[in-house]
Design a protein around this nucleic acid. Structure first.
Lengths: 202, 202
DNA sequence: TAATTATGTTACTGACCGGTAACACCCCAT
DNA sequence: ATGGGGTGTTACCGGTCAGTAACATAATTA
């Protein structure tokens, strides 16, 4: 039990002062997302974290478990986005839905984006027994459920239908940016999403 | 839209009579699609093709080139689907569009599907210089252009918008089946796609 | 200060990776 | 029969992979 260090301003120097486990996880997030999970070795992660492979294996029993933890961390971040949307639009599910679309659009149009890390992991790790599998499924089901809930609270007549339409559209837009780039079908994401919301609002 | 490898299922005997290059390509299609590109080694492909690594390298200069050829083969199959749709619905772009949706739905609901092999490759191979990259981009741009053309010929007022909506929806549905399975958002793919077509038809 | 714990360092294992060299073989055409 | 081209076989290369053992050092805590 100790006072956990502040996570403010993780500039190049202060990130080095974070505990090794956090540095390893941060390095894994960056490398796994940018290069792909299978393309990154544990040595590269340890080096990017300013440590070594032994310390990595003292904190994670295997690379697969590190991958699972990496995805859990991403799930947490997605959850915090929902929390933030609820705080920015209190008692306004309509505004939350609109905020979700804006947040999604930001992700789709981000030139540095490499798509949805969870979806990418799902494609990279088809093995049914992989410890990351349950994290992937739970995270996506959770995201879907939250979107359905917001649609329902917003008074949408067919909340699960609209939610799934938006969900598919976002997943599709993100994967499209990885094949045709941002000049592909994804450039119509906002218009398409708004049209769906509008169509369900009459 | 058939985005998965051939299902012609040549039986174990007749496949042995094909020239080695075709057997290697067929084995590569199956293994790359089922397990992922990075997860499959050239030895495994050669063995599955009933030959050896030397013969493989006599027909393909490198694994990366084999991957590119694998994707070119998939592109050809996608093109043949468009040809078939045109033949099944001559002078009936409306029917072609409807046929596209049915074909896409077949792929989305196929329990053996592992999503779109091209999109999966795009995610697995983020490196800008990979020889497969141009195949991926060209194939996806071609698919998009064909869908736009059919929408235009069908008299849709905003053909590129509908095409992109359908495109994103399909890509999203396919990637969703790889994370949440077929019980996820993808179960609304047909309804969503039909609603989009109907909305653009008024 | 002393003991404990976390971390760093080096070297190693065994397996696999993509790719190649050398040579034996077999079938088909001349 | 006699090439010759395509194929099979074996062994190898250098490199990387995930994961571990042993030991030295720093940081923490009692």
């Amino acid at each position: 039990m100790s006072t956990s260090p502040a996570k403010s301003a993780p500039d190049g120097d202060s990130i080095q002062r974070l505990p090794p486990r956090e540095r390893i996880l941060a390095a894994a997030c960056e490398l796994f997302y940018r290069q792909g999970i299978r393309a990154v070795g544990v040595d590269a992660i340890a080096e990017a974290a300013g440590t070594n492979k032994m310390t990595l294996y003292r904190h994670f029993v295997s690379k697969d478990e590190l991958v699972a933890e990496y995805l859990r961390r991403l799930w947490d971040e997605k959850s915090s986005v929902w929390t933030r949307l609820a705080a920015e639009h209190p008692s306004d599910p309509r505004g939350q839905l609109q905020g979700w679309l804006e947040e999604a659009a930001r992700h789709v149009t981000d030139p540095t984006s490499r798509g949805c890390a969870i979806a990418n992991a799902a494609i990279e790790l088809p093995e049914k027994n992989h410890p990351a599998r349950c994290v992937i499924e739970q995270c996506k089901q959770d995201s879907r459920a939250r979107l359905v809930a917001v649609c329902r609270e917003a008074g949408i007549t067919q909340p699960d239908l609209l939610a799934d339409q938006l969900f598919m559209m976002l997943e599709g837009a993100l994967v499209c940016t990885q094949s045709t780039g941002r000049s592909g079908p994804a450039e119509h994401f906002v218009r398409a999403g708004q049209a769906l919301i509008d169509a369900h609002s009459r």
